[in-house]
Design a protein around this nucleic acid. Structure first.
Lengths: 182, 182, 182, 182
DNA sequence: GATGAATGAGCGTTCATTCAT
DNA sequence: GATGAATGAACGCTCATTCAT
């Protein structure tokens, strides 16, 4: 049965979303998952493993979602990307929080795999933008690398800001394409 | 003499920029600041206090800088804001890292004061944008709240990306005003 | 069927011969005996009980062997004793190792019974020596108590030293009777 | 000040002499040494390190004693060796117990150094016997390797048996030289 | 004020034991 | 009887904090 593993990860996600790694203790996770502490270790080798599993599962989920929807048109594609990302994270606020806390610590050994997955998200956006440039939809004079980084930053900030999803996607998309100048 | 306090905070900033709060131990800070562990407690009541002091000092510094430069013209003002922010953080990469790690944990009791200071930054930007809109420089149809959140996100991402400061300010400013669409 | 009990004890003996009590975990024993962990508890009340059973069985076996062979002549009898002891332990090296590790811990409550059995071995030797003295084969001026203790120590050391059984018995027997002086 | 380190090792020796390694917990050692648990870790990196230090110190002590006394005559030398060994251990019963428990586990990595020291004791005896044989004091037809192993076994058993030191040395020495046969 | 040895609460982890299947 | 997932007490160890010097 996979139910217990998932209920543990769920409990852990809630807690890690509210406190940094070292302030979440295994007792808390066990208590919230309504299992004994020892049970955690029947499913995960260590606290770190549990944490990594949580990230892996979530990122896999996200990547699947992002790759599911895509269109021929680059602009449309960018819109879908932003929409999916915003939708995913507004559904899974807790996981979003965990991920946001994590960003940048991702270099520890066991987290390498996760790091690559977050890079996949960047790459996806990167390639959407590239296609858009070569098709003449997007400006040539902007550095794609910077732009994709920056777009993700925009989205993250907006999600953090607790803005309603639809509105968020629309505002970002609009602003991104046309700028804020009159 | 204030020298010792500052050298402690400097050492702490270096360490907190590289590791999360709980992986920096008081021994490390003492060693790097070349003082005995007990000395830390002559200057700060606790580890948390030391950490908060570090944030306070940095944020005060930043706010001072942001408020120092301003122009009559809203667009010019936005440019100055972005420039100052980018310049400040590229000078103080370590402090930037500490702040980035911190973001979102800022709700703990002792950190409330800091939280308000980061809000001041947002407010500053917010008022620049508002002024720009009412003067007709910026589009009316975009949600200022979202926009200011998003701009800060852009800047942070860009700084994290280690892009050279001048280029960074220019790219962001350009993209922000005119969008990426051809 | 007694087969399962024995296969568990066999597996346990192998493991306890290689590692001290607390470094052998019930999982290991179960795995090596190819049964589930719970099964161990159908046959033995606890880990300690299992361990004690192992010692009891082995010591019973040994005592039986030692008592089986005996002669009228005291010197011959001593020889038989040494031979039997050496032969038994070279057949059951694992059990020997367990016993050697154990020696001296034997004071815990449940192990009292075992302790008495090891004393029986000493007593056996003691009476052989006594008989030898009263028959005039062995020197009167040596303390029998010390001598029997010492002889057992000799044998144990020799067995630990991995010396071939026949040679071992002979060397010890010879040295014991005639000493090492020219 | 070296006093604390020694008082910790003293407390540990008492405890390790009565119970096997895994049944002595750091709390016990701390309590008996009248220090806090953390203090143990200011003096020793780990429980294992503490244990090894205890063995090292004791063995160094023993070797020094054994090497201190020696004579030209091989037989006299053997007597001195037996006397010293017996005297040392009857002074330090606890350390003797620890060492006896340990024997054979000595192969773990950190214990290698200790293992070599116990070998030095054997080597010392070995060379005494060799000298005696070549000088014609001891029988040529016995295997020195076995004999030295066996002699140590005798001594250990005798010490374990709680026999009074003087009497012990004398009995063993006598029996060793002349055998038990009339 | 400066020092660093001492402290002990609290953590991650293990493992003998239980019990529903 | 056999199973193995679940349990939780107990361990080794860390580290923020204190305090005698």
């Amino acid at each position: 049965m996979f139910v217990k593993r998932d209920s543990i990860l769920g409990a852990a996600t809630e807690l890690f979303s509210k406190r940094p790694y070292h302030m979440v203790v295994m007792d808390d996770i066990a208590k919230r998952a309504r299992v004994a502490k020892g049970t955690l270790y029947n499913h995960f080798r260590s606290k770190e493993d549990l944490y990594v599993a949580l990230l892996q599962d979530g990122l896999d989920n996200l990547l699947m979602r992002l790759k599911a929807e895509s269109s021929e048109n680059a602009i449309e594609n960018l819109k879908l990307f932003i929409n999916s990302l915003a939708a995913f994270f507004s559904e899974k606020k807790d996981f979003f929080e965990v991920l946001r806390r994590e960003e940048g610590k991702l270099l520890s050994n066991k987290l390498k795999n996760c790091y690559e997955k977050t890079c996949s998200v960047k790459d996806l956006l990167h390639s959407i933008l590239n296609k858009g440039v070569s098709e003449g939809h997007f400006r040539k004079d902007l550095d794609i690398q910077t732009i994709s980084e920056v777009i993700l930053g925009m989205i993250k900030s907006a999600i953090s800001g607790n803005i309603e999803t639809k509105r968020l996607s629309k505002t970002i998309f609009d602003m991104l394409l046309y700028g804020i100048k009159t």
